[in-house]
Design a protein around this nucleic acid. Structure first.
Lengths: 160, 160
DNA sequence: TTTTTAGTTTTGAAATAAAAGAACTAAATT
DNA sequence: AATTTAGTTCTTTTATTTCAAAACTAAAAA
């Protein structure tokens, strides 16, 4: 079992901080965001509940909530080892792919909202309606092209 | 000057509500999000401070803050008319294009964070490092392809 | 000059959210 | 059976956010 006081070097600390800010902006709580940041650079890349409370200096309750919410969002997953009761947590690399999928669902939702707005609007203000229509088009293009980029990449990946 | 009690029909109200939820998820406050929702379907597509307080039933202070924060984020812009002291607000269609640019800056930031994590990590845990590297690749591809999609669309647009 | 208009800023209340800490629980160990 | 481990859940504290209401301000109109 590692010492609770085990700490990170400056570069790692700054990295955790930076990823923390990034994912806070994306809607995670500060602690969840820092857990993700730390797990990206942790060695080994899986860390126990206990290690996380120690290295991030937060309460058990807070880590428990953070880990469970991250598990539920599939940012992380857990692994276990025979003869060790503890659960270890690591970032779910597949989910980082899913992030991209979420992002293209954003384009779809956006396109849909713009469709609906055009249905609602009269056809006065033609110029404004035209602008909305153009943007709708662009979101539609994204919606169509992004999956292609992903599946292209997936195909190349298999041929490694 | 329009009556303060002017109200929306059900469909419009639901639309405002829906866009409201959507943009709240993206980090706007409820009132800001509803302002955006309303401006998308408002006729005319520009609306005054006073009209917004009336139709959305919120205080002047709240609208003032909402409008200023939306202006700063460039979700909206204001227009004026000669002989009318009031400022009118409308959604900034250019910014909806910028949203996409913001989104591809996301891919760049993400790619950058993954680069840095690979620098920090030792080359033990080769498999995990390999996974991170692959994801980094994909984000890199997005970072490169999205601008192409946008400029393609911009080219077609001019040729209308 | 006084009043009105078109907002802004300040104040404060209410709601919500994040996290600490303590009490709890279920499984494993002794 | 008693204790330890590995967490979870509950309670409380603190901080932050969101908004209404009222006080304020600067420009325009009367």
């Amino acid at each position: 079992m590692q010492a609770l006081s085990e700490s990170m070097n400056k570069r790692k600390q700054e990295f955790v901080e930076k990823v923390g800010v990034f994912f806070e902006e994306k809607g995670l709580t500060p602690i969840s965001a820092r857990v993700v940041g730390y797990l990206i650079i942790a060695e080994p890349h899986y860390q126990s509940f206990y290690q996380l409370t120690g290295i991030l200096q937060v309460s058990k309750g807070a880590i428990s909530n953070a880990l469970n919410s991250l598990l539920q969002k599939e940012y992380i997953q857990c692994v276990t080892f025979t003869g060790d009761r503890k659960r270890y947590f690591k970032v779910n690399t597949n989910t980082w792919l899913n992030f991209l999928k979420t992002r293209y669902s954003f384009f779809g939702e956006m396109r849909h909202l713009l469709d609906e707005s055009l249905e609602i609007r009269s056809n006065e203000q033609k110029e404004f309606n035209h602008d909305l229509g153009e943007i709708r088009e662009l979101y539609g293009v994204f919606e169509k092209e992004l999956p292609k980029i992903i599946s292209n990449w997936e195909r190349n990946r298999k041929n490694d």
